Amino acid sequence: MPHIDYPVNSAESLPPGSLPPLRQAVSRTDRVREALRQAILEGALPPGKALVERELAEMYGVSKTPVREALKQLHSTGLVEINAYQGVSVRRPDNLLVQELYAARCAAEPEAVRLGAVRLGATAHAAARQALQDATTLIGSGETRGLGIANRRFHRELYSACGNSFLCGFLDQLQDLTAFVAGLGWRLRATWEEEAAEHAAILEAMEQGDGPLVERLTRAHIEKARQTISRALGDGR
């Protein structure tokens, strides 16, 4: 086969960055998954609620296939349970889930925010502050259905500052389940204002670039949340 020299600087060459990035199409599965995800996180679909493919397909005006795929994806996040005999339902959190979930967060998140504070130093974190403000506004208005999502945004802005894709990927996998469990805990015992004050202290330490302090505050915040939710679910640990 003859060697071919492709032109590098010809008039037909495209300079780097001249092409726009491809936009990922939003499929029916994506739309169904996001609608169900939001309904679960906001409490519109409570724990134990049966998720029947046929009913959901009729509700969203799609076939059962995208519904089935959406439920599989939600199962991978831990938000739904699949039982061979009873079908699919919204997960019922128990204390074992709470203990394991918060232990996993405690093992990774304090270190991630510490690394972020050290990496960026003393600097403003506008997106985290905006998430904190959004949460405060929701608390003040009494409309707390979206509070879990706002709080997850806050936490993600801080731990993603570490720049470590492995740590961020691991913690991202826990995001939805954490918001779900926290939302259930709040419905049993409202601790929004206490957590908002803890978030404010964590953000202040982060913006000061104080790695050790932000690590301690984050660890204490996660551990306190674990204990509060455990008590709300009926376990004194």
Rank of each mutant, 00 (worst) to 15 (best):
L132N: 04
A122L: 09
E69F: 10
A131W: 04
R231F: 11
R37D: 02
R28N: 12
L19V: 15
A232N: 05
R237M: 15
S89K: 07
A190Q: 15
Q99A: 08
A179M: 02
P7R: 13
D94R: 07
T144C: 12
L138G: 02
G87E: 06
T228A: 14
T137N: 11
E69Q: 14
T123S: 12
R231C: 15
M59Q: 14
S230H: 12
T144R: 07
R114C: 06
G163L: 09
L71W: 05
V52F: 03
T136R: 15
E109W: 03
F166Y: 13
R153Q: 06
S89C: 06
R114L: 08
M59H: 14
M206C: 12
K72N: 07
R28E: 15
R54P: 03
V52P: 01
L188A: 14
S63G: 15
V118N: 13
R23N: 14
A200P: 00
A150K: 01
V67D: 02
F180T: 00
D94T: 04
I40Y: 00
S13R: 12
P2D: 06
H155E: 01
A124G: 12
R153K: 05
A103F: 06
R189K: 15
L22Q: 12
E198G: 10
P212A: 10
E111G: 13
E69R: 12
V26A: 07
R119P: 01
D176H: 07
L177A: 03
V52R: 07
V88D: 04
R119V: 05
E100K: 07
A182T: 11
T123W: 06
S230C: 14
M206K: 04
E215S: 07
L177R: 02
Y6T: 13
E42D: 14
R216H: 11
T123L: 09
D94V: 05
A128P: 00
V90S: 03
L79R: 04
W186L: 13
E42K: 09
Q133I: 11
R114G: 09
A232F: 08
R68Y: 08
A220K: 09
P20D: 12
T228G: 11
S141C: 08
D176I: 00
S76G: 05
E34Y: 04
L51A: 03
L96A: 13
G211A: 14
W186V: 04
I139C: 13
P66W: 02
T77G: 03
P20A: 15
H155F: 09
Q24V: 08
R216I: 09
S63R: 08
R37H: 04
E223H: 03
G209Q: 06
A50S: 10
V67K: 01
I4M: 10
A103H: 04
S89F: 05
E193N: 15
L71M: 06
S89W: 02
R153W: 05
L171C: 01
R216E: 10
F180E: 01
G211D: 01
H199C: 05
F180M: 00
G142L: 10
V90M: 05
V32Q: 01
E198Y: 13
